[in-house]
């Protein structure tokens, strides 16, 4: 037996023994986390909430966060590669449109990624999917709106044909009808993909208000600023003294100069991302996906002073019902599902 073969065998045996004796030591300690999102993380919405969650996760382990927000809706591949070059050991790909490319990137590079809305992409040690039970937040918003409305007419505006918008809209309808089965609900979609269509958001919202809606539940990214402008400048419909707005994902209170924000369905990614970091350390990342829901605090309703104590008590009761399973919120993934729920 040659000398080199003996050395190689000795080295192999040592490595094998080490792997058996110290399995946890094989896990990587996360020193850098990468965050990529399509728009600027100052949108009081999806991109900002994701960043807040990523910052919290990084802080929980003393890691550095590499921020690549405003990366656009196109191919995230080059930015993912840059994050890898910068030393990211976990990447949060904060857009459902990134999922396919990001999952492939994880397989090619070995760097774990967090993706959205495609549970089938989940893969041990590499890919973990995040889903939302956002319909639960929509339900709570519906309960609040039904209590706060003076006209008995509620409006739903969505900027696009988006599953998450439909889920929240369906939850909103169910919540409102649980308070008042006769309540009237008007809804309209700005466009097939009108996320940034502020003009469409404004004119669509104005039309709903003209139809009598005094509470508008708006879902729209950039389009939501047009919705907010419409509510701020609205002439209240007969029977109401003010039109109020319920937003989604983020908290627009800092820019609510005219105090028209009734609430917002908040999405908090902090718990999910912190758990993901812990799962990497434990070697269980990618064994299952994550879900944001009311029970784990991922979905909640922003509390403001613009609704009565009675309304908030009803919201709290509904939240408790969702948490203990006594209230089951319907899942409406399409516009047709929402239409059917309104027609019931």
């Amino acid at each position: 037996m040659s000398k080199s073969r003996v050395l190689a065998m000795g080295l192999g045996a040592t490595l094998a023994l080490g792997a058996v004796a110290f399995p946890v030591a094989a896990q990587t300690e996360i020193m850098k986390i990468g965050y990529i999102s399509p728009e600027a993380a100052t949108d009081y919405g999806w991109n900002q909430q994701g960043l807040i969650g990523a910052q919290a996760a990084a802080a929980s382990i003393g890691a550095e966060l590499i921020q690549a927000d405003n990366s656009g809706y196109g191919d995230p591949g080059p930015v993912l590669g840059q994050l890898k070059d910068d030393g990211a050991q976990l990447i949060i790909a904060q857009a459902s449109g990134y999922t396919t490319v990001a999952a492939q990137f994880a397989k090619d590079s070995g760097i774990p990624v967090i993706v959205f809305d495609q549970p089938e992409m989940t893969a041990a040690d590499l890919v973990a999917d995040v889903a939302t039970n956002s319909q639960q937040g929509g339900y709570l918003a519906g309960v609040l709106a039904a209590h706060a409305s003076k006209t008995g007419v509620l409006g739903i505006v969505i900027s696009a044909d988006d599953t998450n918008w439909h889920k929240q809209a369906g939850g909103f309808v169910a919540g409102a009808k649980s308070v008042n089965p006769e309540i009237q609900i008007l809804q309209a979609q700005v466009g097939p993909a009108g996320y940034g269509d502020a003009e469409g958001g404004k004119t669509t919202t104005e039309t709903l208000i003209a139809g009598g809606a005094d509470i508008v539940f708006g879902m729209g990214d950039g389009s939501s600023f047009g919705m907010l402008a419409a509510v701020e400048n609205a002439t209240p419909p007969a029977g109401a003294d003010k039109v109020m707005f319920i937003d989604v994902i983020g908290d627009k209170t800092p820019i609510d100069a005219k105090d028209v924000l009734l609430s917002s369905v908040l999405w908090d990614f902090t718990g999910t991302y912190t758990q993901a970091v812990a799962d990497i350390a434990a070697g269980t990342f990618g064994d299952a996906g994550y879900t944001l829901d009311a029970a784990n605090g991922g979905i909640s309703l922003l509390r403001t002073d613009n609704a009565s104590d009675e309304a908030w008590a009803a919201v709290d009761a509904a939240a408790a019902g969702i948490a203990d399973g006594s209230i089951e919120v319907p899942l409406t993934a399409t516009q047709a599902d929402v239409d059917a729920l309104i027609a019931q």
Partner: peptide, 11 residues
Amino acid sequence: GAGTFVPFVTH
């Protein structure tokens, strides 16, 4: 129309 400006507002 919009009462504000957001990126890509002309859509």
